[in-house]
Amino acid sequence: MRIASTQFHAIMNSSLQTANTGLAHVIEQMSSGQRVQRPSDDTIASMRLSRLSREEAAMSQYQDNIGALRSRLRNNETLLTSLNQDMLQVRDLLVWAADGANTPADMAAMASSLESLRDSLLHTANSRDSEGHFLFSGTFTDRPPIPAVSDALATPPITAFVYAGNMATQEVAVGPGVTVPANVTLEEMAALVKQLDTLATNLKGPPLMSAAAAQPQVAATLNLLDTTMNSVTSKIGSLGGLQTVLQTLEDNQAAVSLSNKQASLTLGQLDYGEAAVRLNSYTIAVQATQKAYGRVSNLSLFDVL
Rank of each mutant, 00 (worst) to 15 (best):
Q17Y: 11
G175S: 10
L224M: 04
E56Q: 14
E55Y: 05
E250I: 07
G268F: 06
R70D: 15
N20D: 06
N183H: 09
D303F: 00
I284T: 11
R74W: 01
L249Y: 09
L199M: 05
S231N: 13
S82L: 04
Q243K: 13
L153H: 14
V180A: 02
N252L: 11
M229H: 02
L153Y: 08
M107C: 03
W96M: 02
P39S: 09
R128G: 02
A173R: 08
Q89V: 00
Q63E: 13
L225M: 07
L203I: 03
R35S: 14
T228A: 07
A108Q: 15
I66P: 06
Q217I: 01
M30D: 07
V172M: 13
K235F: 01
I66D: 07
S238C: 03
Q37A: 06
L279M: 12
A220D: 11
Q170K: 07
L239Y: 03
T78W: 01
T141V: 15
P104S: 06
D106M: 04
T283H: 01
L80I: 02
G294E: 05
Y62Q: 10
P206T: 04
Q287I: 01
N84E: 14
P39F: 06
V95I: 13
Q7I: 00
I27A: 14
Q217N: 11
A152H: 02
L225C: 02
A97S: 11
A57K: 10
A200I: 00
I146N: 08
S31T: 14
V304L: 07
